[in-house]
């Protein structure tokens, strides 16, 4: 069985269905990229996976263990192994950069401060923010905030990293600095599910691409299969639209 196995997953916002029968598998070290038009359920799928939106049906199995989202202990265990980076960074505005990265390992994982601080400084060095340790999020650019958000997610040592359109809210000149970090993580074989509109980047780092539309996975394959030889009509229409836009 794959490291992450999603089977027939469905979810609703109120009464409107937003995910219907999504099935996907992600192997350890793989980078799965979710693409598709706005409102196709890509971000919702990540929110369901991390337990921010309860699924209505279907199952999620992580490392051989089925996740019961209704059981707080199971949810805590899942969130101990997964982390998410949001489109709008969602950094804690009341904390410095360093504290944003340290807070979960310190307060939730209850690890010793010196060790946590050393790791946090190293992570912030990795994302190129050693000079901003004591700055508050409001003093940083969007790109810098997103890099802090990535460092914060990595600080909990996730086995699976969920990236929700992490460059969509950034000015074009800041996109690259964030993509560089993700590229680095991919080279380190971090298992990731990334929702992205950066098609060139998806093609470069994704090992697998899933095209979503109207809450379901329309087509799944390697980047070459999806971008160069889409099988379904919907995939062909979407890819041709993207190619025209670029």
């Amino acid at each position: 069985m794959a490291f992450l196995q999603i089977a027939d997953l469905s979810a609703t916002y109120g009464r409107s269905p937003v995910l219907s029968g999504v099935s996907l598998a992600v192997e350890k070290g793989e980078v799965l990229s979710l693409i598709g038009p706005s409102g196709s359920g890509k971000s919702t799928l990540l929110r369901v996976l991390i337990g921010l939106l309860p699924p209505q049906a279907g199952s999620v199995t992580l490392a051989g263990q089925r996740v019961d989202y209704a059981v707080p202990a199971a949810l805590r265990a899942l969130r101990g192994r997964c982390a998410i980076v949001f489109q709008q960074y969602n950094l804690f505005q009341n904390m410095t950069v360093l504290n944003n990265v340290m807070v979960a390992p310190l307060k939730i994982k209850r690890r010793p401060r010196p060790e946590v601080e050393e790791e946090a400084r190293a992570l912030l060095g990795k994302v190129g923010l050693s000079a901003k340790l004591h700055a508050h999020p409001s003093e940083l650019s969007g790109g810098q905030q997103q890099r802090v958000a990535i460092a914060r997610a990595l600080a909990v040592k996730p086995e699976l990293l969920l990236l929700d359109e992490v460059t969509s809210a950034l000015d074009p000149e800041l996109v690259q600095e964030v993509l560089d970090i993700i590229r680095l993580l991919a080279q380190e074989h971090m298992t990731m599910i990334a929702v992205s509109h950066e098609m060139g980047f998806v093609r470069e780092i994704a090992t697998k691409v899933a095209l979503m539309s109207e809450g379901t996975v329309v087509e799944i394959g390697t980047p070459a299969e999806i971008f160069d030889a889409p099988r379904s009509e919907r995939a062909r229409a979407f890819i041709s639209k993207i190619i025209r836009a670029h």
Binding site: I50, G51, L52, R76, R79, G80, A83, I84, F86, Q88, N90, L91, F92, Q93, N94, V103, A104, K107, I108, R152, V156
Partner: peptide, 21 residues
């Protein structure tokens, strides 16, 4: 609301989220 989402995703319980974030 995104502050609640972040805290929940990082495994903060309700009270800890309220008090620290």
């Amino acid at each position: 609301p995104n502050q609640w989402d972040s805290a929940a995703a990082l495994n903060f319980g309700y009270l800890r989220c309220v008090l620290t974030v």
